[in-house]
């Protein structure tokens, strides 16, 4: 099995360790899961799903949050 998988994270290709959950991915990036919304392959994940959904090879993941805007 490969030591890493390739994903598309916020528009950038990244290599991450296999078998991590979305929650683990968020925490590994030093972000707070409660403040983040995750879109995985164009579907929005509910916050309760973060721990159960595993990041897969080729996933397109968007991590978004609220910023200042008018």
């Amino acid at each position: 099995m490969s030591q890493s998988i390739r994903i598309q994270l916020n528009g950038t290709e990244r290599e991450i360790t296999p078998a991590v959950s979305v929650r683990e991915l968020i925490v590994s990036l030093d972000l707070e899961p409660e403040l983040i919304v995750v879109e995985r392959n164009r579907s929005i994940l509910r916050r309760e799903q973060y721990a159960d959904v595993t990041v897969e090879e080729g996933d397109v993941i968007e991590l978004v949050h609220f910023v200042g805007g008018g």
Partner: peptide, 11 residues
Amino acid sequence: TVSVRRVDLDR
């Protein structure tokens, strides 16, 4: 009002 944007991963 607030906007929805990608988290800046480089912070």
